[in-house]
Simulated scan of single mutants.
Amino acid sequence: MSFKSKLAAIAAGAMISASASIPAALAMDEITVAYFLEWPTANQVAQMKGTYDEEMGVKVNWRAFGNGNEMTQAMVSGDVQIAYSQGFVPFVVGVSTGAPLKLVGIAVTYAENDNCIVRDDAGITKDNAKELEGKKVATPIGNVTHYKLLKTLDHLGVDPNNVNLVQMNPPDGAVALARGDVVMACGFGGALTRMREYGKPLMTGAEQEAVGINTFDIITVTDEFATEHPDLVEKFLDVTEKANEAYKANPDEALPVIAQASGMDAQATKDMIANFGFPTAADQKSKNWMGGGVQEMTKGVADVMVAAGGMDEALDSYEQFVDPNYLP
């Protein structure tokens, strides 16, 4: 299935009428939080030790999902109140099609794991990036990677209309870069690792984050849960903040617990989490994040998806779906 077809399938699966409502809230003696296995995050120490239950005063059930769109559907049905580390694209699709969700925090960042690599023999860096104009660049079209590429080119003074963007999913982009068919390729995961064998990033992930070009997963809640139980949302984010800081202070102590929670062996957990970042609440509320950057990116990604045919239409604004006020 092509990337465009996958986006269309996601959009179809997430299509919810704007009038859809969540069943009446439970007495909130327990809640369900969606998360991913094989995705190690700092908060899983608090998950495993029952810290969330203790601090929130409710039983917290952790339910693993296969993808972010499934999380959206479970939240719309009322089965899940909080999604931890939900993917950004499923959130954009969900709220664009009527899902009553609210983004209340940034779960994890991984800018270094989603990037564009320039061939070493091209002689192109961020300092002379305009030389990309007139050349072929491989990228998946209509997703966060594509959006980040456009923002990066704009930041470096490159006119994207003068760059020959070629639709390629990351594995194909890696092959094209290796053969020299393209001067730069964009991707993520294992394909990005293979791309790095032939070149270097146009901008590092850290350099991108410094100017508000971010790659991240999010913490979302249902509108009803946030409205009726704002204290529980605040406590969830507070426990998460403390767990993140405890991990940063002593990662070696936390890693065995995180490995157990994520269903991975210790070395795989260590290798993966080393590429993750867990921004503080203060960082999340800053201009580059939920102080404006995330809202802008939500609209930008939605527009890119519409242009690529992966979504019927974007909303005029996504401001109402991003709320940093629950953060500690």
Rank of each mutant, 00 (worst) to 15 (best):
F188D: 12
E296N: 03
D217R: 09
V233N: 08
A259M: 15
M15S: 07
E245I: 15
A24W: 01
T298C: 05
M56P: 02
G300V: 03
I218R: 00
G300S: 10
P251K: 11
L255T: 01
K270A: 15
N69Q: 14
G157D: 13
Q260I: 14
G212H: 09
M56K: 09
L165C: 06
A254V: 04
G309P: 07
F278W: 13
G309A: 11
I22F: 11
K102C: 05
Q47P: 01
V166S: 06
L327P: 04
V257K: 12
N69H: 14
G105N: 05
N162T: 10
K102N: 05
A274S: 15
E133S: 02
M272S: 12
G212Y: 09
I82H: 06
T145N: 10
G123W: 12
N113A: 13
N244L: 08
D114K: 09
Y198P: 05
D172C: 03
G300A: 08
V60Y: 13
D127I: 05
G57P: 13
G293T: 04
I213F: 03
D265Y: 14
M305L: 07
L101R: 00
P171H: 02
E70N: 15
H155E: 13
P201S: 04
A138F: 09
D238T: 08
L37T: 15
E133P: 05
G300C: 04
V257W: 09
N244C: 13
G50D: 12
V233K: 14
S17F: 03
T139N: 00
D120R: 11
A249M: 04
Q73S: 08
I10K: 06
G212V: 01
T269F: 07
V33A: 15
M195K: 02
G189T: 04
F188Q: 02
L156V: 06
I213V: 06
I22G: 10
Q167M: 14
A307I: 01
S19I: 05
E38P: 11
V58H: 08
S5H: 11
E55Q: 15
S317F: 00
Q320V: 01
K151Q: 08
F88A: 00
T227V: 12
P230E: 06
G157K: 07
I218Y: 01
I273D: 04
F3V: 01
M203Y: 13
N214G: 01
V92I: 12
G134D: 14
A42H: 12
M75E: 01
T298W: 00
Y84M: 07
D29Y: 09
Q47I: 15
V322A: 03
Q167C: 04
E228G: 04
A27T: 08
A107G: 10
F3Q: 04
A206P: 06
E131N: 07
N43H: 09
A307V: 00
E112Q: 11
G199T: 10
Y110P: 14
L37E: 09
V239D: 02
A246Y: 03
D181Q: 03
T41L: 12
D223S: 10
V175H: 10
L177D: 06
G277M: 09
K135T: 05
M184R: 02
M264L: 15
A178Q: 11
A268M: 13
K285R: 13
M203H: 10
N250T: 02
T125W: 07
K299A: 08
P100K: 07
V211P: 14
I258S: 10
L101T: 00
V163Q: 12
E207H: 08
N61A: 14
G98I: 00
P160Q: 07
S96E: 00
L177E: 05
A174M: 02
G142R: 02
E133M: 03
T125V: 09
